[in-house]
Deep mutational scan, measured.
Amino acid sequence: NQASVVANQLIPISTALTLVMMRSEVVTPVGIPAEDIPRLVSMTVNRAVPLGTTLMPDMVKGYA
């Protein structure tokens, strides 16, 4: 089972991601792979991401 990136807090729309905002967790459905966390830092989300939500590729500008 692959770990995915999960929001560690509410991430408001257009917020630049930082390490403290994300954690890795094995979830269903599978989202962005946890090993991509370093790549996600400073990318922005294009929607509000509630606490505990799995980050999907279409939620992060420039990721997909």
Rank of each mutant, 00 (worst) to 15 (best):
V41N: 03
M21K: 00
M21Y: 04
I13S: 12
T54Q: 02
V26A: 13
M22H: 00
V60H: 02
A48G: 09
P50L: 10
V26L: 13
S4A: 03
Y63E: 03
T54E: 02
A64W: 04
V60D: 02
A16I: 11
L40T: 01
I37G: 04
N46P: 00
G62L: 06
L40W: 02
Q9N: 06
M56I: 12
T15K: 05
V20C: 08
A16P: 15
T18C: 04
M21A: 05
P50Y: 11
L51C: 11
A64D: 13
S14T: 11
A16L: 09
S42V: 03
P38T: 12
A3P: 14
P57W: 06
M21S: 05
P38V: 13
P12F: 04
M59R: 00
V30W: 10
R23V: 07
N8L: 05
T18K: 11
M43H: 09
S24Y: 07
S4D: 00
I32T: 01
P12D: 10
Q9Y: 09
A7H: 01
N46K: 11
P57D: 05
M22E: 02
A3C: 09
G62P: 05
L40G: 00
I13F: 11
T44K: 10
T18S: 10
T44D: 04
P29Y: 04
L19Y: 11
A7R: 01
A7C: 04
P29D: 05
V41E: 05
S24K: 08
S24Q: 14
L19D: 06
S42L: 08
S4H: 01
V5F: 03
V30P: 10
L51V: 12
T15Q: 10
M59L: 04
L55S: 02
I32V: 06
P33A: 13
A3D: 06
T15F: 06
Q2P: 15
T15G: 04
Q2H: 11
M43T: 04
I13Q: 14
A34D: 07
N46H: 12
P50K: 14
T15D: 03
I32K: 00
L51I: 15
M59P: 01
S42Y: 11
I37S: 04
R47E: 12
G52V: 03
L40I: 10
L55F: 15
A34M: 10
M59Q: 05
N46R: 08
V30I: 14
R39T: 11
V41S: 02
K61Y: 10
A16M: 11
A64P: 14
L10M: 09
A34W: 06
S4K: 01
A3H: 11
P38R: 08
T28P: 01
P50S: 09
K61T: 14
E35Y: 08
T15A: 13
A16E: 12
V41T: 05
D36R: 08
S42G: 14
A16V: 11
D36I: 06
P33M: 08
N46W: 06
M56N: 05
I11Q: 01
S14D: 15
V5W: 02
V30S: 12
S4T: 04
T18D: 06
L19M: 11
M56W: 05
P12V: 04
I11Y: 00
R39E: 07
L51F: 11
A48V: 15
V41Y: 04
V60W: 00
M43S: 07
I13R: 11
P38N: 13
K61H: 10
V60S: 01
P38H: 09
S14F: 11
A3K: 07
I13H: 12
E35V: 14
D36N: 07
V30N: 11
M56T: 10
R47L: 07
L10G: 10
M22S: 01
M43G: 02
L55Y: 01
R47V: 15
A48M: 13
D36H: 12
V27F: 03
E35K: 07
V30Q: 11
P29E: 05
N8F: 04
P29H: 05
E25K: 06
V20A: 13
G31F: 03
M21R: 00
G31Y: 02
T15E: 07
S42M: 15
V5A: 13
N46G: 07
Q9W: 06
I11G: 02
N1Q: 15
P33F: 12
P29R: 04
L17Y: 00
I13E: 15
V20F: 13
V41D: 03
L17K: 00
G31N: 01
V6G: 00
V26W: 08
R47W: 08
V60N: 01
G52Y: 04
V49E: 01
V5C: 06
G31K: 01
T28D: 15
M56F: 14
